[in-house]
C-alpha cells in the first residue's frame, strides 16, 4: 500500500513533456484571454464614460478631461517665456491668409470706427481704449508660423502692439498678476481664456495690421489677438473686452471638448 502511494506522488511530480506543454499552454492562454477580456472591458468603459458636467469645460468624457488637465500641468513645467518662436523674412509670409471661422464676428453692420476696447480693471472700473491710443504705442511686427488645431500651419505677417507693452502702458500690471486673462468679441459670442503668462509672452500681440495693411473684417478688424504660443482657436478676432481673473475664464472651444490649455 505504502509503496503505491509513493509511486503516485512521484508520477505527480514528474510531469511528462506533453503534460508540461498542456499545463503551460493552459495557464498562459487563459491569462491571455482573461487580460484581453479585461482590456476590452476597460476600453468599453472608457469609450462609454459619461460626459463631464458642463462648466468652464464641457463636451469631453469625464476621464479624458481629467487626463487633459493633468497632462496640461505636466507640460506647463516646460513652458518658458524665453522660448520664442522662429521668425521668417516678410517675403515668406502668405499673401492669401487663411480664414477659418467667423464665429463672433458675423454681425451685420459692425462699424470698426465706432469700436472701443473695454478693459475690466475691477468690477466697477472699466477702462475704455480707442484705436488711436493703441496705435500710438510702439508697433511690433511678427512673421511666424501660425498653427491651427486642425493641423495646418501658415507663415503669416502681423503687426500691432505687444500685449506686455499694452499692460505696462495702461498700468494694468497689478491686474495681470492674476493667473488668467479672458478676452471676448463685442457680441460675446466668441471668448477665450489664457494664462496671463502666455498672454505676456514677448511675441503675443494685439494686432491691427496684416501684411503691412490694416486688418480686414474677416481677419478680426480692428484689433485681434495674435498669441503664437497657442493654437489658432485662442487667437481671438475683434477683441471687445479684456478681463482678469483668478479662475479659468470661459473659453469657446474648451466648452466643445477641446483642451482648455491648447498651448504649443
Amino acid at each position: 500500500m505504502e509503496n503505491q502511494t509513493n509511486q503516485n506522488e512521484e508520477t505527480k511530480k514528474e510531469l511528462t513533456v506533453e503534460q508540461k506543454i498542456k499545463r503551460r499552454n493552459f495557464i498562459s492562454f487563459s491569462t491571455f484571454f482573461v487580460l484581453g477580456g479585461a482590456t476590452y472591458g476597460g476600453w468599453k468603459w472608457l469609450y462609454h464614460a459619461p460626459e463631464e458636467t458642463a462648466g468652464i469645460t464641457a463636451g469631453a468624457r469625464k476621464p479624458l478631461r481629467r487626463a487633459l488637465n493633468k497632462t496640461e500641468l505636466f507640460f506647463r513645467k516646460f513652458y518658458s517665456n524665453n522660448h520664442e518662436l522662429k521668425t521668417y523674412p516678410k517675403s515668406m509670409a502668405a499673401k492669401n491668409v487663411r480664414v477659418n471661422s467667423d464665429i463672433g464676428i458675423d454681425d451685420e453692420g459692425f462699424k470698426p470706427e465706432n469700436w472701443q476696447l473695454a478693459v475690466v480693471k475691477s468690477k466697477n472700473d472699466v477702462l475704455k481704449v480707442t484705436m488711436a491710443e493703441i496705435k500710438a504705442l510702439p508697433k511690433t511686427e511678427l512673421v511666424y508660423d501660425f498653427k491651427c488645431v486642425e493641423g495646418w500651419d501658415q507663415i503669416q505677417h502681423w503687426g500691432g502692439v505687444k500685449f506686455a507693452d499694452f499692460i505696462e502702458h495702461f498700468k494694468l500690471d497689478e491686474q495681470a498678476k492674476m493667473p488668467y486673462i479672458g478676452m471676448e468679441t463685442p457680441n460675446g459670442e466668441y471668448y477665450v481664456g489664457l494664462e496671463s503668462e502666455s498672454a505676456l509672452h514677448p511675441q503675443t500681440l494685439l494686432a491691427y495690421e496684416m501684411n503691412g495693411q490694416p486688418i480686414e473684417l474677416e481677419h478680426g478688424a480692428p484689433l485681434r489677438l495674435i498669441i503664437p504660443v497657442k493654437y489658432g482657436i485662442k487667437n481671438l478676432k475683434r477683441i471687445g473686452k479684456i478681463s482678469f481673473s483668478n479662475q479659468r475664464p470661459r473659453d469657446y472651444w474648451a466648452e466643445q471638448g477641446y483642451d482648455y490649455y491648447s498651448g504649443l
Binding site: 463636451g59 469631453a60 468624457r61 476621464p63 479624458l64 478631461r65 487626463a67 487633459l68 497632462t71 488645431v149 486642425e150 472651444w253 466643445q256 471638448g257 477641446y258 483642451d259
Partner: peptide, 14 residues
C-alpha cells in the same frame, strides 16, 4: 471628431 481624437491621443500617448 477632432476634439475627441485629441483627447484620446493625448491620454494613450503616455
Amino acid at each position: 471628431r477632432l476634439a475627441e481624437g485629441m483627447a484620446f491621443h493625448f491620454l494613450f500617448m503616455w
